[in-house]
Amino acid sequence: MDHQNTVVRPNEERLSKFEEHVGEGKAVEPRDWMPEEYRSHLVRQMSQHAHSEVIGMQPEGNWITRAPSIRAKQILLAKIQDEGGHGLYLYSAAETLGISRVEMIEQLQTGKAKYSNIFNYPSLTWADIGAIGWLVDGAAIVNQVSLQRTSYGPYSRAMVRICKEESFHQRQGYEIMANMMNGTADQKEMAQDAMNRWWWPSLMMFGPHDGESPHSANAFKWKIKRHSNDELRQKFIDKTVQQAEVIGLTIPDPDLKWNEEKGHYDHGEIDWDEFYRVIRGNGPLNKQRIAHHVKAHEEGAWVREAAEAYKTKQAQKYN
């Protein structure tokens, strides 16, 4: 009995100390003790976030060579480059939890790790570039602003840095949509069509209703998560509906209406069958996105090997 206690107590003590620390709103740093479940939750969430930034380069990259003006091309390319940069910070931040980038990439390519569902939809017209910047980055910001106060220090610092750039992306996307809504009949039609296709998937980015979210209980207790999925979704809807109205876009939801009493917009039900279908791998482009990543990775293998071999040779030379 005594013997057993000495084995168990230290962990319990550490856990209660950890929870007290987090409860006071203090940050957890890589060297601090943390429960294994906290660590694995963060590895899952942060690597998924990093993969989303990287896979998100594909739908936007699809329009780089067809961007319709010098300025548009410049802005789009710089935006995609930012997203790649976000991927890099997030991979580094996740590495502080004891997983390597090589492992994370392998998990992505084998389907063990996920990325945001939204990038399994195709970018079909130039207006999709506007819609992605405005809606997808707009939804990401709402989520990321909340994560600026997440309990894990490296993650929260990465979010602070990333959020500044994301708000540029959101404005630039909105500007594309606004210009098109100010343009020819063809352009207006193109913009509304993009709105129709991206609205619902953007709402799904916040995840299932709170009752059905699989990892939320501890995530709240340990302050990884500060706001519920539905709360964040509502915030996004409220701000976006007004922006759409200003430029004359219609939200493709007949049930959408202002609720005076709540001070929020009520909205129609999300198609959760579609949500789970895409998560399970049957979205329009799940297979293409991963195949693209694998192809670039495999085609680059000889380059990475060459760089390693050169480094080794140089090290031998000077030893």
Binding site: V54, M57, Q58, G61, I64, T65, K73, L77, I80, Q81, G84, G85, G87, L88, Y91, H292, A296, E299, G300, A301, V303, R304
Partner: peptide
């Protein structure tokens, strides 16, 4: 710019975009 999302690793992908 055609290299974007096709680079041999992420840092180099971004380096090629910088040149572009």
């Amino acid at each position: 710019s055609e290299w974007c999302s096709n680079g041999p690793f992420l840092e180099e992908d971004l380096a090629l975009t910088n040149l572009a």
